[in-house]
């Protein structure tokens, strides 16, 4: 399997452990990632607020880069996934399309709308398949109760992102089960992490993040996992302030999705960059039996 790799900004900077673990997992599972140094940031929903058509054009350019190479595009961030899908959707509107084409064509960029945008989660569940992953597990995450946290833009608006139910998704839990972990069901898994207003009103953002972590915790989660580095920032990097805002010590380790996959497939914590997290992951991993080899 060969895909255009769209890492997004955060995974190349403060969330490097996500890029690191993605590459490890893809290498191990035989997914060839083709890199394009021309890819720009997706605008993260913020440029969309300032200028809708500009945001579509920036992402149409990203899509056109993958199209020119005849590849589908793989994201590792719910927000990147949402923004690229949104651009595809808005390009179906002839007025938007005309404005964007008029800006792109003189630059020699031809958007056709032929590349698919897919997230690592979907590549693993549908492209590789749960059985194939299960067969490669060397260190089952047995006994680890994990709360999956999807990230809004992977699920909604469901008529634009359109993969699985935005209300009752299960791909992430299915993957966790295949890794040997015990997925925890809680309402917060499909709700918001608070990140979009982290810089508008940190107190509100923190309360929202804290509420979701508490929800996972009250349902028995010993760790959380997310397919989105922005959710990871809210849930891990800002967990300290979030705990103070909800008046409880949270102590919830939060993994990036490929980190858990990598650990189950035999990667070391160092290879997954776990030391870069703000909330330590050791206690959660200590629950997982080491393979008797």
């Amino acid at each position: 399997m060969k895909l255009a790799y769209y890492p997004g900004c955060v995974a190349q900077e403060s969330g490097r452990e996500l890029d690191l673990s993605t590459r490890w997992v893809c290498r191990t599972l035989g997914i060839e990632l083709v890199e394009f140094p021309k890819f720009s940031c997706c605008g993260s929903g913020f440029i969309d607020e300032a200028n809708e058509v500009l945001n579509v054009a920036i992402n149409a350019r990203n899509l056109a880069i993958a199209e020119a190479a005849g590849l589908d595009l793989m994201t590792i961030c719910s927000t990147c996934q949402g923004m690229l899908s949104l651009a595809q959707h808005r390009m179906l509107d002839s007025t938007v399309r005309a404005k964007v084409d008029a800006a792109l064509r003189p630059l020699g960029i031809d958007y056709r709308g032929s590349a698919k945008v897919t997230h690592l989660l979907r590549v693993l569940v549908e492209g590789i398949g749960l059985d194939a992953i299960r067969a490669k597990v060397r260190r089952p995450l047995s006994g680890l109760k994990v709360g999956a946290f999807y990230g809004c833009h992977l699920l909604r608006p469901s008529d634009e992102t359109g993969w699985e139910s935005g209300e009752e998704p299960h791909s992430f839990e299915d993957l966790l089960s295949a890794l040997g972990a015990e997925p925890v069901q809680y309402r917060g898994r499909v709700l918001c992490c608070g990140f979009p207003i982290q810089f508008v009103k940190p107190e509100t953002a923190g309360r929202i993040a804290g509420r979701q972590i508490l929800d996972a915790k009250h349902h028995g989660a010993e760790a959380m996992a997310t397919p989105c580095p922005l959710c990871h920032t809210s849930l891990d990097a800002y967990q300290g302030p979030a705990g103070k805002l909800v008046g409880e010590r949270l102590d919830m380790p939060v993994f990036h999705l490929p980190q858990l996959v990598g650990l189950a497939l035999g990667a070391s914590p160092q290879e997954m960059g776990l030391a870069r997290h703000l909330v330590p992951t050791e206690a959660a991993l200590a629950r997982v039996p080491t393979p008797g080899r």
């Binding site: 403060s14 605008g43 913020f46 440029i47």
Partner: peptide, 17 residues
């Protein structure tokens, strides 16, 4: 933040956090 993000991206194509 929205306008800052927009101008920020123009500089390097990726975000300067």
């Amino acid at each position: 933040h929205a306008v800052g993000f927009k101008t920020n991206l123009r500089d390097a194509g990726v975000l300067n956090e």
